[in-house]
Nucleic acid binder design. Structure first.
Lengths: 243, 243
DNA sequence: GGTTGAGGACTTATCTGATATGTGCGATGG
DNA sequence: CCATCGCACATATCAGATAAGTCCTCAACC
């Protein structure tokens, strides 16, 4: 049996996807610029408009194209949407993935903090101050968590490494949502807001002092604490029942 | 201007995507099981088959569905495809992202190595041995690099953290390809294969000894070396011209 | 002159219906 | 018992048509 289970000929949609990728990556087009219309693409590639649409849809899901009704498809600016989608989906599939994700955050954000302490621009430091004080002004848990996520995002951005920044953004937001959903009601949060503020304050201070090692250690402690809280919630969630 | 740029009514495709997500996440379906056929979905959702197809295509691109000609769409097993796509696209857009990615690897793989030293099962250790000896048997640069990537993947898997495993897999493969493409010809690789084998040997030995700190340090040194090589290649590629 | 708003060209969103092709199961026959 | 051939089902792709959003133009208006 030399029978291949793979189709002997690449599907047309797959061909369209490759063609579009070449346009995007090698076509000398910058983010924000427009591709030819679906109709034109269909003609030049010798397929129906429908097939072009499926390809465009795929590239859109990958975060490479921006599609809006009435406008030609545009090259997307690099963004973290595909990552967010991936992490969000992982958490929806199994909330226990929170524990796996926190390990990734631990690795990534500690390193990001080191880099931030070494390379942060003064502008970035200002943003960090702002994010921190926003946390202090939050009065309810909802907005506090939101400000918390923002602090981490700003810190990651201060590392100067966009890839790290994307990953942190993409992980923190779905984690926060997932946490909120599961914690709704019982705010048996191991630590108080003040504890958490202290932890962030230490991080901020060390970054400002350009103390890379201290900043990294402060971030590590913060995330280890968070991990402990998370473990507590995931093991004894008692009466969580379904949603 | 209270004018919303967003369409007042969610597009039908978006509705289909949400509906499918609910089937996938909350429908009590396990990976490998099948969704209703496009036709049935179209009927129950009150849209045309075409619209269903677009939604299915989107979820496929996100790695949540597996679509094959002649068979109903199946729930996909969790996989790293979306991550691979993201990193591959980032590198195609700008090869300088290699330097950003190596930082992520540094953070992630060092942590993964720590976890592996602490938690690796004996089976995982055996796989690691095997991957290491495969590296030693490689005679050309191509297969050596391939075995190298495999070693890192196996090590990440040994951490017991699937999320880390996915990320490492998704980053290492595109990085290798990108590196190969840019190095084609001048194998002015800073280190020899023997150097690299030594670095891996140190990692392996420390993991076997359950020496978490030592293993992490060995991995860190390995990746710092790799980063240096990478920097050398990206800064003095001489005739790259433009920005 | 500058601003506003209607008109029209262009483009995507979605529907309908039809054909081609791959999958899988069960009947058929050795 | 088992290999094989149909047939029902399902996806892949095409064609043509209508609805709806976007953007530029140009004229009317203040």
């Amino acid at each position: 049996m030399d029978n291949e289970k793979a189709p002997r000929t690449e599907s047309r949609t797959a061909g369209v996807v490759r063609h579009l990728e070449e346009l995007i990556f090698g076509g000398g087009l910058e983010p924000g610029q427009f591709l030819p219309s679906e109709g034109e693409l269909a003609t030049t590639m010798g397929v129906s408009r429908l097939t072009v649409r499926e390809g465009v849809r795929t590239l859109q899901a990958r975060g490479l194209l921006e599609v809006r009704h009435g406008r030609r498809p545009a090259i997307a600016h690099p963004n973290a949407d595909p990552l967010s989608g991936f992490f969000a989906a992982s958490l929806r599939r199994d909330p226990r993935n929170l524990l796996e994700l926190i390990e990734v955050r631990l690795a990534l954000e500690v390193h990001a903090t080191t880099l931030a302490a070494q390379h942060a621009t003064s502008t970035a430091l200002t943003s960090l101050d702002l994010a921190f004080s926003t946390m202090g002004q939050a009065d309810d848990e909802e907005s506090f968590n939101q400000a918390d996520v923002r602090f981490h995002a700003v810190l990651a951005a201060a590392s100067g490494n966009q890839m790290i920044s994307f990953l942190v953004e993409a992980m923190d937001e779905p984690m926060r949502q997932s946490r909120l959903r599961s914690l709704r009601g019982h705010l048996a949060r191991g630590r108080t807001m003040d504890d958490i503020m202290d932890e962030h304050a230490r991080i901020l201070a060390a970054v400002r002092d350009r103390d890379a090692r201290g900043a990294a250690e402060a971030m590590r402690e913060h995330l280890v604490q968070t991990r402990m809280d998370l473990r507590a919630f995931l093991t004894l969630p008692t009466s969580d029942a379904d949603d």
